[in-house]
Structures are given as C-alpha cells and as structure tokens.
Design a protein around this nucleic acid. Structure first.
Length: 201
DNA sequence: GCTGCGATTGACT
DNA sequence: GTCAATCGCAGCT
C-alpha cells in the first residue's frame, strides 16, 4: 500500500496538533512497538522561540533541526534521557515538534521490558523520555527519515483529531521568555498524557 | 579550559 | 510535595 509523504512544511505550531493520534512504529531490536501519539509540543526556529534548541544558531547538536522536514531530531538531556522530535517547516527553518507522550498500542510486552520501572501500562510512554525508552530510540536514530519505507522508525499520520478533542496549554518545562506560548497540544481524556508541570527554576 | 544548567525521571517524604 | 542523578552542550573567560 502506498502512503504519501505528508506535507510538513508548515510552522511547527500548525503541524503539532496534526500529529496527535498518529502512529509511530519502532523496529529497533526487531520486534515492532507502536505508539499512538497523545501529547506534543511545538518549537520554533532561530531568533523566534527562546525555548527552542535552535533559538541561537545551528550547532552540531541541533543540526538535524535545520535539515528537511520529516526527520527525527533526537537529543540527549539531563545526562540520562533521550527525547524525540519531528522536524517541521521548510528546510533550514529549524522547527520541530517534540513527541511528549503516547499510548503503546502494539508490542506492549517489549515496551514493558524496556520500561521495567513503569507502574502500569499507561506509564510506558507517558513522558518524552519514557516514550523514547519504550521504543528503544536513542541518539543513533538522530536524522532518520520518519517516512522512508525502510526506516526502523516510521510515523504514520492518521485522520486529524477534531478541535473539540484537543487540549492546548503552555509548554512543560520551558521557562523564561518562551514560557508563555500555548504550543503544547494533547488529546483530551487520554490517560497517557503526561501530568502538566509548571516551568520551574 | 571552565562553569552552569537543562524540552526529565524516579525515588522518597 | 521535594530532590538527586548525571553529562553533554553552550556560553563565557
């Protein structure tokens, strides 16, 4: 079955809500694990969004954000965790959508093995670093094309959720000048949506 | 070269 | 609710 490559050239804040409900499948390790995305955050480009890694300029770390849309931008944080973004906007605009949480809909057994500390299945991918952990995604996958036929990480867009089912809030964990932007989107009533935490520090 | 801190999580009170 | 873990990056000297 042919699946067209979606147009992700709009601004990250336009793309972000469209990714809600989409299916992300990882074949890392051989056994597929699929997560249905329930929470995302948009990040802007150079000089636009103080909360974005791309705010200052292109660096070796954020280089993938400056590449073409549809790729995976994976970064390491807090000395332990990996987080996964979908690059959006025209090439060079450096927009991205952080995948913050999802519901594991296939490969639950494998996800449980990777997330031994999870108290329940809804915690398997509830949180950006938990999501990458459940999928077995690390920095090795940075720059991967999420829509290439043979990618070990593939994103499949579904019918967009209706506005009535989408919640909006300020971004989690983003302080300072970028704190006010309502660029966090989530599916209402989903238990896998991470608890909102106010930006601190 | 040195320092501060982060798009977080999990353990603990 | 609070807090430590842990290390690469970015910014500055």
């Amino acid at each position: 079955m042919m699946r067209p490559r979606p147009d992700l050239t709009a601004h990250a804040r336009e793309i972000a809500p469209l990714l809600l409900g989409s299916l992300l499948t990882s074949r890392v390790g051989g056994v597929p694990v699929t997560v249905r995305i329930t929470e995302v955050e948009a990040y802007g480009g150079v000089g636009e969004d103080p909360g974005s890694h791309a705010f200052r300029r292109e660096t070796p770390r954020n280089a993938t954000m400056f590449g073409p849309p549809g790729r995976a931008y994976v970064y390491f944080t807090y000395g332990i965790h990996w987080c996964l973004n979908v690059v959006t906007g025209p090439t060079g605009s450096a927009g991205a959508v952080l995948l913050r949480a999802g519901e594991v809909v296939a490969g639950v057994d494998v996800a449980r093995e990777r997330r031994i500390s999870a108290r329940s299945d809804r915690d398997l991918a509830r949180g950006p670093a938990r999501l990458t952990s459940a999928l077995g995604v690390t920095g090795e996958r940075d720059g991967l094309d999420l829509f290439a036929a043979r990618s070990v990480l593939r994103l499949m867009l579904t019918e967009p959720a209706s506005d009535a089912n989408i919640g909006v809030s300020a971004r989690t964990g983003v302080g300072g000048a970028g704190a006010g932007t309502p660029w966090r989107f989530f599916l209402l009533g989903e238990p896998s949506v991470s608890l909102y935490r106010r930006a601190s520090r």
